[in-house]
Design a protein around this nucleic acid. Structure first.
Lengths: 162, 162
DNA sequence: TATTGTTATACTCTATAACTATA
DNA sequence: TATAGTTATAGAGTATAACAATA
């Protein structure tokens, strides 16, 4: 490394600033916090061959047996076209069934197979361990606060004045 | 729509569950909150021709004049290859300069142009309005809590026991 | 040998338009 | 005409390997 110049910062001098300018924004803190959660979540699900969206799909399909894809996409807040490959993957792996609805032959009813149930149970345990790990420093109050604050954001985003 | 069957839920019945199974996870609340913030942030920056990453790049470059790309990528928590196109875009638009470092001819020193400064000032004002809008329901205490909780996550993610 | 910036590449996530078959 | 699922496509975001120039 070159010797320090006798006066003033040399190019690339980083005596302090770094990301200080970004720490003025609440959104920056949220992004960094979310990155930590998401990285650990992905690492948690990887050994099970799942991602966040496939895990969520199994959870919602499990809670709403017989759901149609359009409704499933709606509950998952993703576009219908993007759900197609996800469903296809889970059906191919024998985790979901996709059966024609008798009363509407356009639609498919989605449901978990026994194998899907088994994997989902395992994944839920892994996710619960993941949350205990990532939110280890969170008191009960912290957790309540987090849910309250995030819910405020979601209400704000939906234009709901309640 | 078909008449309701006399007993039991028909396929696709959604009398209650929806995403209830996901609401057991703190990460789900964070994801949904983050989605609201990010959607409004992107809409805010779009008229200025900026994205979250280009805005952040201008902020950090502004606070650390003469920074090298590798350091910049480090501060922005992105991989060096992914910064190349971002810098190139901002240089092409006349917002950044990229000059060879005299003492190390491998490296470039990044700095804002006057045009970059002007746009950044405008973007900062837009982002501040965005944060007032999105976090409108947040009290001072809420904001303090949010920063504290997110910082706990970041410490957890970095393995920092402090 | 190691580092800076770069190229090439690939995978995920997301969004839209348009098609088909049904309703 | 409208809806369910699908196809094709395109844009971001992110990650890794490998190269040329320089240290």
């Amino acid at each position: 490394m070159a010797a320090r110049a006798p006066m003033g910062p040399e190019p690339g001098d980083t005596t302090m600033a770094r990301d200080a300018g970004l720490r003025r924004y609440l959104g920056y803190y949220m992004k960094r916090g979310m990155n930590v959660v998401q990285a650990d979540l992905n690492a948690t699900l990887k050994p099970l061959g799942l991602r966040m969206i496939t895990f969520s799909t199994l959870v919602v399909a499990s809670d709403n047996p017989g759901l149609r894809q359009a409704q499933l996409a709606n509950f998952l807040s993703i576009e219908r076209p993007n759900l197609v490959a996800i469903i296809e993957e889970l059906v191919q792996r024998g985790l979901l069934t996709r059966e024609r609805v008798k009363t509407d032959r356009r639609a498919y009813a989605i449901a978990l197979t026994p194998e899907g149930r088994t994997l989902l149970d395992k994944a839920k345990k892994a996710i619960e361990a993941h949350e205990r790990r990532v939110f280890a420093d969170f008191s009960e109050d912290d957790q309540t606060h987090l849910v309250r604050l995030m819910s405020k954001l979601v209400r704000q985003g939906s234009g709901d004045p309640s």
